[in-house]
Amino acid sequence: MELEPLRMQVFFPASLEIQEELLKAGFRVPYDKESGRKTPIPVVVSSREERRIRRSRLLKARDFESDGKFAMLSGEKTSIEFELTERGFLVLRPKPIEYHLEEMGFVSVPPRVWGTWASFSLPFSAYDELVNFLADFRNDDGNGFYTASRGSGGRIEVYAYKGRKGKDLGIPVFGYSLGLHGLTLAEEYFLERARENGVPEERLRYIKLGLRKRRETKAGLKVGLIWENGRPVEITLKLSTTEPRVRIQGLYGELVGKSRGELARTEGWYIVVHAGDFITALETVGRAFGGKPY
């Protein structure tokens, strides 16, 4: 089964592993105070709706309009394939089709200490289709699952967690692969930065800009619903990692943050969870306000 998300955001700047790999290759990440040269690690973004961002934050895009201060990007397209295995695992395969690269804007908390570093939002209209697709893996015993919510104004986000040990994680993730390899815009971006920074272009063939789950990585997928003015409007999926912690030597001192996985030259994106966990989490958030979410 394949669905088209409303939005996708993968925050590769949250990875100290990728930052260290680029530093070792000779890039000035994210910013060199002396020369003024910078190589911010891109956030990969795809949005079905038109998007307006500061021109200075846009690193690379195929088509956009700009008034000098802001860039206006037209709607983009990506997809997520949901694949079931014989052993009861659910493999999510995000496929960026139309996307752009953004520089991380200023945030009070550095992304290297965030839990969530990849998010995908689906229209709520996909809820029944997902539930029917996974119906054979339904477990009526929802014990061990609980929800947490947060809201502001007319917007409420509700997420499901499996067990108290899974706080801030969601449901267990058994494997994942996300990376900048194979993304044409990312390849063009790093080629341009290599020329600006005096990094030999052939070095790009050997650097690893992808992440795979290690055995010791504590990872989870938060499955949630977003409500606006009393109605569910989106299904949201957020990939999080919390342990182990890693240390690297940055341009201006040691940096400490959460591991995002093992460096690898990734070929495709995927996230692996138990199908039973996914449908239980989805139905748990669906019942958060009593009954079905419609």
Rank of each mutant, 00 (worst) to 15 (best):
F70A: 11
L183D: 09
V44C: 04
F289Q: 02
S47P: 00
A160D: 05
V223Q: 08
S108E: 15
K69F: 03
A118K: 00
A126C: 09
G153T: 09
T116A: 13
E83G: 00
R193S: 03
F133C: 05
I279Q: 03
Y161M: 13
G210L: 06
E98L: 02
L191Q: 11
S108N: 03
F133K: 07
Y252E: 13
P293D: 05
I279T: 14
P42R: 00
G153C: 04
E50F: 03
S119N: 07
S240Q: 10
K167T: 11
T241A: 12
P94Y: 14
R7N: 14
V109H: 05
L92I: 08
L3Q: 07
K69Q: 08
R150T: 14
I97R: 15
R51D: 13
G166V: 10
I207R: 13
Q19H: 09
P110T: 13
I279P: 02
T39P: 04
G115I: 00
R93W: 10
V199K: 05
S149E: 14
A288N: 12
R150Q: 07
T116M: 07
V107N: 12
Y294A: 01
A61V: 14
E283N: 12
R37W: 06
T217P: 05
G253M: 05
L239I: 11
L180P: 06
S74P: 00
V273M: 05
G250S: 09
Y270L: 02
E188H: 08
R231N: 10
W114P: 03
Y159A: 10
R247A: 12
G88M: 08
V273F: 10
E20F: 07
T85E: 07
L183Y: 13
L22D: 04
F145I: 08
F145C: 08
T217Y: 04
Y206V: 09
A264D: 13
I248Q: 07
E187P: 01
G26M: 07
E262P: 00
Y294W: 15
R164F: 12
E34Y: 15
R214K: 15
T266Q: 03
E103F: 02
R28D: 14
Y159L: 08
L3P: 11
R265H: 06
E17C: 00
K69T: 09
